[in-house]
Design a protein around this nucleic acid. Sequence first.
DNA 1: TCAATGTTCATGCAAACGCATCGACTTTGG
DNA 2: CCAAAGTCGATGCGTTTGCATGAACATTGA
Lengths: 157, 157
Amino acid sequence: MTPPPSAEPSRTELAAESWEALFRAQSALLRRFAADDVWDPISLREYDVLFTLSRRPDRRARLRDLNREVLLSQPSLSRMVERLEAAGLVAREPDRADGRGTVVVLTEAGAAVRRTVGRRHTAGIRRYVGTALDDEELRTLRRLCDKLRLAQESIPD
Amino acid sequence: MTPPPSAEPSRTELAAESWEALFRAQSALLRRFAADDVWDPISLREYDVLFTLSRRPDRRARLRDLNREVLLSQPSLSRMVERLEAAGLVAREPDRADGRGTVVVLTEAGAAVRRTVGRRHTAGIRRYVGTALDDEELRTLRRLCDKLRLAQESIPD
DNA sequence: TCAATGTTCATGCAAACGCATCGACTTTGG
DNA sequence: CCAAAGTCGATGCGTTTGCATGAACATTGA
């Protein structure tokens, strides 16, 4: 149970330190982005949903699939989509292939808001991320984060 | 305004891709950790507060300082500390050096809960992070995330 | 010195969240 | 073929969050 008597950090310690560093970096950046006055008329979380939709073929996705990519509970996403629909940024339609499903579609207005907010947000990313690391480091960070995320699919619950 | 006609991704694109990768990796991991049945009797966010306190000298910190490290608004943290105090996991006392301040102290019970939950949480970290990357990659990820976070202190608002 | 300004924490309040659950539909297995 | 089990999305409900604000104290500058 106790770590081996070694000067080297164990694999578990390395993992814990890396996760903490990742978590803290994300928190610090998220705080900066949240402080940026670029989000009107949506929230950062809503932007995430619109952004995710905008990358999908036909700008549409099943609610369930959307939920897999966004850090929100299913009921919360359901209600957020409801609000976005009321604001005219997305539309909901039944899935013809599965009677249980709801398909969420990004409207033109939603795509426009996504682009506008996205451009402003990108300025922050360039400022807070792009000036902190050089090109090589950015590429490495991206590669490791992608690897870390994709690995989750192979790790059973 | 438009990117130069080049096959190379611009610095801005690199930064955006890296941030997205970081954000998605953090989301995926946070979801896994949240699904782990290890949090009782606290939430993941509350654990973060207890954990942060546990690393401080004398296990105590000003509310304001705590708020700098945790991704919560000041009122939310104030109320969370209120709940943690009601649960006996922290204590609040006035700051003798500054009449405005409130010092939050981790109690013995709070430290015990932090350790118990921390041990269980660490198993998840080892599983989800420690098996996804090798030692060298973990060290690199940690280094880049730390650099990214620390750089924020030098970037004005 | 002291008025003006800034900082720190608490609280009222509305919005958003997650959990539990339900109805509707789909998939599976005998 | 159909009953049982599983999946999907919506909704009731209590909890937690953030925003706006206020009271108390600290700091600043004339």
